[in-house]
Simulated scan of single mutants.
Amino acid sequence: LTDAQISSWIWALSVGMGVTTLGLSLLMRVPIVIAWSTPGAALLIASLPGVPYPEAIGAFLMAALLMTAAGLTGWFDKLMKALPASIASALLAGILFRISVDVFVQAQHQTLLLLVMFAVYLLGRRWWPRYAVPGVLVIGVALAGVLGQLHFEQFHFAVTMPVWTTPAFSVSAFVSIAVPLFIVALASQNIPGLAVLRADGYHVPASPLIAVTGLASAILAPFGSHGINLAAITAAICTGPQADADPRRRYMAAVVCGIGYLVMGIMAASIAALFAAFPKALVVAVAAFALLGSIANGLTVAMQTPAERESALLTFMITASGMTLAGVGSAFWGVVGGMLALLVLKPREPKSA
């Protein structure tokens, strides 16, 4: 791909995420965060080589239309209603745990930076709970600068321009890209995304959300978007108590996130260079500390019902493992394993006489 096509890809994803996050959150007054399909991007690394770019764009479009159909028919909503709160919460905790635990691995290499950030987080939680994570970010950036770990050599301001590519269609691209992309996004992104909302008490209908993200993906596919869907990790930051003590006001966190997405789309190349300037340990630590509340809440809800604890624990363990089986990520298999265990282990209700 050319640099212009790569920038257009980032632009399409960011604008799609921004518009849908803003629109859905303001309309429903719920912190609905949309993200690009990370498992889908990983899938494309293996699937795209050798496929002409117009055919890849056509496959993106077909995957988006499949997602739209899944939302409009309503069957995804029925699937989510059958998912117990304990399994959904364990799924959330497992997803976030896998991300957050890396901060301790990073501590082996960036001990001073992470110890200071950890201390700032604890002090912030003790005296200024709402500002603990922003404080960690500010102090972390300042200390990284003092330690000479900020690298702005490649940073520059540039406005991103979208590039249109006329889709082309082929059976091979549909089978090898469109169908797997649809399945991976549905299983590894949308199910966890709905689980995050449910775990924090937001019981919104799933089908309209899936349909809207599918339509947005279809519109933006010719500009390079391989698909947007419900967020899980980013959403957990906006749906948890760290966003606002009042659940009714947490949607404003998603609104701010949506605005950030739009800015990122306009300045895609510049934003990428800015994040690259920060040490990995700093980024991981800020994310980990921001997610601690959501992990704790997820585990609390997951373990509340004694008859479902073991199934929820299995869901958490499988999801947190990060395994990939048949090209599908651990979030999907966590749900499968947990539901199977629940079916086998949960005591049956006695029949009435």
Rank of each mutant, 00 (worst) to 15 (best):
A281T: 09
Q242H: 11
T38Q: 04
F104H: 06
R309F: 04
L230I: 07
P84R: 03
W9V: 13
P167D: 15
L48G: 10
I191A: 00
I210N: 10
T38R: 05
V301R: 08
G193K: 02
M317I: 12
V196Y: 00
T239K: 02
T38M: 11
G298W: 01
A281Y: 01
Y131R: 07
V33A: 12
G265T: 10
S47D: 14
A107F: 04
I99G: 01
R309A: 09
A269L: 08
S330A: 15
G71C: 02
L44W: 02
T315Y: 03
T165E: 12
W164T: 11
F332K: 01
L65Q: 13
T213V: 13
G18E: 15
I237A: 13
A326D: 14
A236S: 12
Q154A: 05
M252V: 11
A211W: 07
A277P: 04
A70Y: 01
V336D: 00
G322E: 10
G258S: 15
F155S: 03
S311N: 03
P167S: 14
V116K: 04
N297L: 04
A216D: 14
L112C: 00
I34R: 05
L65Y: 11
K280C: 03
I233C: 03
G74M: 02
G74W: 00
L112V: 08
W36A: 14
P205S: 09
N297Y: 02
R250H: 05
A12C: 14
V256I: 10
A302D: 06
G40E: 09
A69L: 14
M67Y: 08
V133S: 00
M80F: 03
A232G: 14
V256A: 14
I99R: 02
V33E: 13
L282N: 05
A273S: 09
L345K: 10
A187H: 04
I10S: 10
I57D: 11
V328Y: 00
G337H: 09
L197M: 08
A331L: 08
S352M: 02
R348A: 06
A320N: 10
L114F: 04
G94W: 02
K81D: 08
